[in-house]
Amino acid sequence: MAAIEQIAMNPQADEASSAPVIAVRDVRKSFGSQSVLNGVSLAVSRGETLAVLGRSGTGKSVLLRLIIGFDTPDSGWVRIHGQNLVGMSLDKLGEVRLKMGFLFQHAALYDSLTVEQNVGFPLQHQRKTMSAAEQRDRVRKLLAEVGMDGHLDKMPADISGGMQKRVGLARALALEPDILLLDEPTAGLDPISSAEIDELILKLQSEHHMASIVVTHDLHSAKTIADRLILLNEGTVVIEGSFRQLQQSDDAFVMEFLKHS
């Protein structure tokens, strides 16, 4: 939390090289009368993976949506590379999102496009100077990286949930982002597929050195892939630290969460 405090005192501080790539300060978000986030702060640096844990409906995915700019916080701010997303135009947000990759909970592959076309979509729209052959090579390299190079012409409906997540991951990496946001990467997968996805995320992390936030309720997965964890309850951060610190906590909610995970 020290980095966050530093940014709060000096807004220009996050431009320094040691500053966090993602900084969220005291964000609050309500939908109608339902308050979802009640002042959440976090910071993630390059090469670091933060897992956001919590029960269903505690605002984990909403937090991720605020960080990529799909939603706007009612108060507080979200800075990506020092740029505040709050109040930013759609085109300007687009420029910031070029540096971000997002894996959706259900992969969100374009169902009218093949696996190859799905991964090629960001390149087709954002790398117009790349030739078709270069784009094809890049797509195939990405799909090989996630072990899906044998399924180029398949439609999303014809592959399993785990495979869809892999393709979604390849698509998220297409623009070589330095931020990776993962929404429940192992949700709905069998234990073996979950472990494979975890291994894949670890491998990609070590190769690409991105700042990552993983939203999950899978404690085992969080323990495997994250450097640091935060636990949300009723829209606030209950605890932040390593998995060991989480285990050593005497907070009733933390103990309850660990007991049932």
């Binding site: 997002f102 374009y110 954002q126 998220a172």
Partner: peptide, 16 residues
């Protein structure tokens, strides 16, 4: 596309 988050995925790719 909206309910399956495909429109969000388009936005995430920095496409309007």
């Amino acid at each position: 596309m909206k309910v399956t988050e495909q429109i969000d995925a388009i936005e995430a790719s920095a496409v309007n």
